[in-house]
Structure formats: C-alpha cells, structure tokens
Computed example of a mutant assay.
Amino acid sequence: MAEIPTLVVRKPCFDLPTGCPQCLSAYIYLNFAKIPFQLNFHLNDPHSDKIPYFEIGDDFVAYDNENEGVIQCLGKNGGVVDLDSEVCSLPEWIAIKAVITTWLHDALVYELWVGNKGSPAYSIYYSDLPWPIRRVLSSKKVRSVKVKHGITGDNAVAKKEEIYERANSAYDALSKLLDEKNYLFGNRPSSLDAIFLAHGLVVLQALPESSTLRIKFLEHDNLVGYVRKCKTEIIEAGPQIHTDASSSGFRIPSTQKGHKFKSAPKREKTDEEKRFKRKGRYFVAGQLVAVAVFLTLMMSFDFAEVELENVDGGDE
C-alpha cells in the first residue's frame, strides 16, 4: 500500500482546518485535485516561511518558500498534479492571477496585521508563543507591511483607501468572471480557485464584522455563495484521505524525469528533514533566549513602539 502524503500546516482556528491563507489554499487545491492526504499541524515554528509543506515519505518535500510555493511545486514544477494546464493559456488568466496574488493578497495581509491591530494574525500565527516573542515578531511584521506599501504617518489614510479600492475592484472583476459558473474558469477548478477561496474563507471567518475588507466582500453575493459552498463541500467534509491512491489521478514524482523540483538523494533529504524536525527540541531554549534578548532591549524598543502606535492612530 502506498504511503499517504501529508500536508503540514499551521493550526486550525476560526472554524477552519487551518487559519493560514497559504496553508488553506494548498488544502483546497489538494481536495480539488482529489489527492489523498492527511493533515498535520506544525506548532514549533508558526512563523516559518516553509509552512505549508507537502511531503511524501522521505522522497519528496515541497516547501512553501521554494519554487513559488507549494501549489506551484505540486503543479508544473513538481509534476504531482496540475489543475491549470487547460486554463493557463486563456487571455484573462494572467490578469486574474495578478489581481488575486497582488491586490487581494496585499489587502488581506494589510487587514490581518494593520487594519485590525493584528488581532486575527495573533490567532493564526503567534498565539502559542510567549507574549514577548509574539510582540517582537508581530511588530516586525507590521513594520514590514507598512514599508512594503510605503505607509507613513502622513499618508496612512490615503494608502489605506488605495488598498481597499484595489481589493474592491478585484472583487468586482472576479464577480463578473464567476457569474453563475461553478468555477472561475468554467466547470473545472484551478489553482486560482483554491487561492481565492482560501482568501474568501479567511475574510469571512477570521475578520470581524467591522472589517472594511469583509464589508466589501459581502457586497458580492455570488462570491460569498461560492465561498460558502466551498466551506460546506470541502472544509466541513475534511481532507481527502484514501487508501487507494491510484483512483485519484495522483502520482508520486519520479526522480528520473528531470522535474525542476525534486528531492535530493534519499539519505541527504532524510538528514535535512531530521534537522528541520529536530528544531522542536530546541524550541523551549530558543524561547528563553528570545525572552532574555527582548528584556535586554525592551526599554529602547518600547520607545519605538510608542512612535509606531502613534502612527497607527492615524489609520483610524
């Protein structure tokens, strides 16, 4: 019997199998592809950019920070299953992909970390970490989001409106594209469906009712219906776990076919995996070191935080 692959994700929250948008899109993609898999949760390093990752024993591992992400690794780069082969040549494909992966991605990241003072993000990424580490990591992320968008105390309101206007334009375009169809590009799902549905589920489930992004999303009835249908048919049904992988169209990538993403020789990959998993043994020690560093720097850090919070006050 073939070994069932594993999708490793951040923990469940907000009544979702995982609260992380990237993890959730990989989860939905695998369900669309009818790939048999089991779900595991990685709690030691919730901020790691390797998560999510998909592994088949010791022979194949696809990390999210390699080859443009897990979905891309599973698709044309990894040769596991490609849901986009019949639609990626359509004229509107590239434009819609850009809209989803930039405007909507940026809007959700802004809303998670800045628009709601990081409250939903704490639950998704940091709630299991000690508060000093959580505070340092989240503050660093907030600053990086503001730097990416060029947000300052003087332009915070204008930048906020720009982000939401782009998101609303994206929702308008996607609503017209979906219309009454089952999926964005006809009667078969693609990776863009998985990415958008993960976005929509987090918007509806994780963001508060007062969220500007959530309010704008709720104005598009067919998009809301599509996301809720996904929650009923995929999320509430749980992951696809079967004992017979042959009926799913899933295939383990062959190292003889020259895929762009493939494992190193088995012994080397096993050592790499052992090193990654062994990090958990040092997690407590790492926390203590981080707390010590935080307490050492706290006085100077607090002054910077006060200034940052004053800038945040301009976003209201």
Rank of each mutant, 00 (worst) to 15 (best):
V224P: 01
D15I: 05
K146C: 13
V142F: 02
E307R: 12
A121W: 00
C230H: 07
L7S: 09
K160E: 08
E209C: 14
V9I: 15
A206N: 06
R281Y: 12
F37T: 07
S247R: 08
P17K: 05
I4L: 14
Q72L: 04
K277N: 14
F250E: 03
K34H: 13
T212K: 12
P130G: 03
A2L: 10
P239H: 08
Q205A: 15
E307W: 03
S246M: 10
R166K: 15
N65E: 01
C88H: 04
K229Y: 04
N65F: 07
L16I: 09
N116R: 00
S191Q: 09
T18Q: 10
V202W: 13
R143W: 00
A170N: 09
L30D: 03
R267M: 14
K277S: 12
S169P: 02
T270W: 11
G150T: 04
R214A: 14
H259Y: 14
S190D: 07
L177Q: 15
N155E: 06
L112K: 00
E55S: 14
G225W: 01
H220G: 06
G258M: 09
V81F: 12
S138N: 06
Q287Y: 12
P265Y: 09
P12E: 04
T296C: 12
G280Q: 06
D15P: 04
V224F: 02
Y171S: 03
P46L: 06
G118F: 02
I51G: 06
N31S: 14
V70T: 12
L295V: 14
V202T: 14
E309Q: 12
R166D: 07
R214P: 04
K216V: 05
A156Q: 03
P208Y: 12
Y29A: 11
S210G: 15
Y110E: 00
S123H: 03
D312A: 07
D312Y: 15
G118L: 02
H259V: 03
V109G: 00
E161T: 13
I234G: 05
E273L: 15
E3T: 15
E161P: 02
L24I: 12
K269V: 12
F303T: 10
